[in-house]
């Protein structure tokens, strides 16, 4: 989908397990401005389900979930307040 767009920030969570992955992702998103794009890279397979669910529940848009062998990459957008 929007994988061509370059992320504004990248969060490297390799070696970390839950709940740190989820908490760190939400903490980083909170510091970002509307319209910005965050890339998250983890090597914990569980985050494949967890991070998109958390991001959506907390009002962000998870645009992409990718697997690169033992690495997982997520693209999450901070929505603009004016609408979709």
């Amino acid at each position: 989908m929007n994988t061509e767009r370059k992320p504004d920030l990248s969060l490297d969570l390799r070696g970390e397990h839950c709940p740190y992955n989820a908490i760190a992702t939400l903490e980083t998103l909170r510091t970002m401005k509307p319209g910005q794009l965050l890339e998250v890279v983890t090597d914990c397979s569980q985050s494949f389900h967890g991070i998109p669910e958390d991001a959506t529940r907390h009002g962000y848009h998870c645009l992409a979930v990718e697997q690169h062998g033992p690495l997982f990459r997520f693209l999450i957008e901070v929505p603009s307040p004016t609408g979709e």
Binding site: L9, S10, L11, D12, A24
Partner: peptide, 21 residues
């Protein structure tokens, strides 16, 4: 307990995307 400061690592954040395999 898990979220106590001494068990947290500082966030590894960088601008732009990361290199993938």
């Amino acid at each position: 307990i898990t979220l106590l400061p001494f068990l947290r690592h500082s966030l590894r954040v960088q601008a732009g995307g990361s290199t993938l395999p």
